[in-house]
């Protein structure tokens, strides 16, 4: 699904190399997790995949279902099936959550040459998906993320993901700022989307999210590289011993 090869990324305005040769392949139907200390480049990887400005790819490639995504605009990547759940979801005052979501769904449909969803159908679908995430009618009406608690923002990200039905979902620290109940809701939301045709890249600091969203593969990122790859047991090892041992091992 997502194939990243020897990806080197530096900041556009600064002479600072952040990703130093990332190799990663996420297959359809699988859940990959990336763990790693703060500042190792996890968020940068997610931003570069989704097309945020400010970064320069100096070497390497990234493809989604064989298509080069690095030259695409963010909206084109979204229409191609890429989704990033933000570590810090953005507040948009004055724009209703539902209005925003319908605009996004229809924009993607249009980009793919599909017909717009009718207001009635949209309402039916969103109500059903919101219910599962315990997002009430008021939250749907309110401006995007404005006045939402940390947990509500993350649930809202998952709602967007559920509505947009992407093929490749990248979740950047979706667990940060969540209490146990919210973590369960978010995980259930993600698990409900698990599907043979869909892949996940779950970025997290902690093992606990991975208790709920069981990964197939776990990568450890440090210093702008994937330094170790293994099964779910790798996450448990991080939980027990921290990154110190692992990184020492690699060095």
């Amino acid at each position: 699904m997502l194939e990243i090869k020897n990806l080197h990324v530096k900041l556009e305005d600064e002479d600072k190399q952040i990703l130093k040769g990332v190799d990663l392949t996420v297959e359809a139907g699988k859940v990959h997790a990336i763990m790693g200390p703060n500042g190792s480049g996890k968020s940068t990887l997610s931003y570069v995949m989704s097309g945020r400005d400010g970064y320069e790819v100096t070497d390497g490639a990234a493809t989604l279902e064989g298509e080069d995504i690095l030259e695409m605009e963010p909206e084109e990547r979204a229409a191609a099936g890429l989704f990033l759940a933000f570590q810090y979801p953005v507040e948009i005052p004055g724009v209703g959550n539902m209005t925003f979501l319908r605009t996004a769904v229809n924009a993607q449909r249009k980009a793919r040459g599909e017909a717009e969803i009718s207001a009635g159908d949209f309402l039916k679908v969103i109500r059903e998906k919101a219910k599962m995430l315990k997002i009430d009618a008021d939250m749907l009406k309110r401006p995007v993320n404005v006045g939402f608690s940390g947990g509500e923002k993350k649930r809202n990200e998952i709602l967007q993901m559920a509505m947009l039905e992407p093929k490749m979902c990248i979740l950047d620290e979706t667990d940060s700022g969540l209490d146990v109940d919210a973590m369960k809701l978010v995980s259930e939301g993600v698990n409900a989307l698990r599907d043979a045709g869909r892949a996940f890249l779950v970025i997290t600091h902690y093992q606990r999210l991975l208790d709920h969203i069981k990964p197939d593969v776990v990568h450890i990122m440090a210093g702008g590289r994937i330094v170790k790859t293994g099964g779910p047991e790798l996450a448990l090892e991080v939980e027990r011993n921290g990154y110190g041992d692992l990184l020492g091992e690699v060095a």
């Binding site: 945020r52 963010p74 979204a78 990033l84 953005v90 948009i92 724009v95 996004a104 924009a107 980009a111």
Partner: peptide, 28 residues
């Protein structure tokens, strides 16, 4: 720019995303 990227990452084209942010700005 962060808000613009957020909207675009959801598939909203740049022009439409800008319009939404203009509406957002005028909302008060």
């Amino acid at each position: 720019e962060t808000a613009l990227f957020y909207l675009r990452s959801r598939g909203v084209p740049q022009k439409d995303a800008t319009d939404l942010l203009v509406l957002s700005f005028l909302a008060e």
